[in-house]
Simulated assay, not measured.
Amino acid sequence: MAVLREWGLTLGKWAGRPVARVQEDSGDPEVARVRTAAASGDWATVRRVLEARPESEDRTELVRAVGDTAGVERWITGVVEAEPEAALPKLVAGFRHISWGWEARTGARAQHVSRDQFELFHSRLRTAEEWLYEVAEREPGWVSPWLGLQMTGRGLQVGQLTARRRFEAAVRRDPYHLGVHQQQLQQVCAKWSGSHEEMHAFARDALLAAPGGTALGHLVAMAHIEHWLDLDRGADAAYMRRPEVTASLREAADHSFRHPDFVRSGGWLQVLNTFAMAFSLAGDSAGARECFTASEGRVTESPWYYINGSDPAAAYKEHRSAAGR
């Protein structure tokens, strides 16, 4: 199964209907700009783009984009050494070593990953942790190092108690940060030593504790998709068609993207794509159609790659057609 990448998205029109396409940004032109600068080792531009954003969801998306860029590891250590008192280079170095670590491990199942791959994976994550803890000490109000530590913690298997403490540290700094909650949702999934019950409870509690219009409705839809993924063929479809699943999705939608205070920023497109897939699997054509219309053909790779790993846009189009859109 493909490794999760959280920025995707769109464009184009054909016969009056948006053409579904996946693109390596979230509709934010600064994502492409910062990636280009990172690929060429242009730290001045990377710094300028990152410093122009508040230390929140918007900046963490850009930092993760830099971290996902191949080759950053070849120059970022030099920047860290040249600016020993600066937090931002260490933050970028930490996120690059997270992505670089997962590159070493690959997306294969554990039994197909060699000992050497695991050792390199863990070594890079431990280096990331060192930098991220330094950032957290230098900038105690920043949420981004704690988001990174959630990611390293899962790879290093720090355990549920430590993982929960890292999540709590992050939400003290940004209570409704979608990325932080997404990481904790993964932490309490059955595949990461959690359970379906814990996962669903976390998703709903987080949603209802947040103000109306929050992006955290995504957690409820994603929890149902994670549950669906864990079931055998036949049982998975039966689960998604349960009336209580549809009711749960509608409640979450009403509290998030259907709410008048919902803002199209940050991860809003992934919220719509995730609900579109969940409503489709649940057989709620009206709910799915609403999300497909609102997303205007803009396809986020997650969660559609769970259906078609090589062509998420094809999965989006297939389910959009089935919903009558």
Rank of each mutant, 00 (worst) to 15 (best):
R138E: 08
A110D: 13
S114G: 08
T106V: 10
R105F: 07
R109V: 15
L132A: 03
R105S: 09
L125T: 10
P140C: 08
R124G: 04
W100Q: 00
L132C: 04
W100V: 02
W142A: 15
R138G: 02
G107E: 10
T106H: 06
D116Y: 06
S144P: 00
G141I: 02
S114Y: 10
L132H: 06
R115E: 09
R126D: 09
W102R: 10
V135I: 03
G141C: 03
H122P: 08
V113M: 02
A136Y: 05
F121I: 06
W142D: 12
V143D: 01
P140M: 06
T106F: 02
E137P: 00
A108M: 06
V135K: 08
R124W: 12
S144R: 07
W131T: 01
E129V: 12
Y133E: 14
E119G: 04
R126Y: 03
R126N: 09
L132W: 06
E134Y: 09
Q111T: 15
L120A: 15
E134G: 10
E119L: 07
A128R: 01
W142I: 07
R126K: 13
R124N: 10
S114M: 05
T127R: 10
G141H: 10
S123Q: 12
E129R: 12
R105V: 08
H112K: 13
G101R: 07
A128S: 12
E134K: 09
R138Q: 14
D116I: 12
R105Q: 07
L120K: 12
E103C: 07
G101K: 00
T127V: 14
A104D: 10
H112W: 14
E134L: 13
P140Y: 04
R138L: 14
Y133C: 03
R109E: 09
A104C: 12
G101I: 04
E103T: 15
A110N: 03
E137G: 11
R138F: 02
R124Q: 11
V113I: 15
W131A: 00
L120Y: 04
A128E: 00
E130N: 04
L120V: 11
R138M: 12
P145T: 03
Q117L: 00
S144Q: 14
S114N: 10
S123H: 14
E130R: 08
W131I: 09
R115M: 00
P145A: 03
A136D: 06
G141Y: 06
R105Y: 11
T127C: 08
E103R: 15
G107T: 00
P140H: 06
G107M: 07
P145G: 05
E134N: 02
A108R: 15
L120N: 05
H122Q: 10
G101D: 04
A136C: 03
H112C: 01
R115W: 01
S123K: 14
G141V: 00
G141P: 08
R126W: 03
S123N: 13
T127F: 11
E139D: 11
A110K: 15
L125H: 11
E137N: 13
G107P: 01
R105T: 05
Q111S: 13
T106K: 01
G101E: 05
F118E: 03
W131D: 04
V135M: 00
W100N: 04
E119I: 04
E130L: 08
S123T: 15
D116S: 11
S123L: 02
E137S: 11
E130S: 06
H112N: 13
R105D: 07
W131M: 05
S114V: 05
W100P: 10
H122R: 13
V135D: 03
R126P: 08
E129N: 01
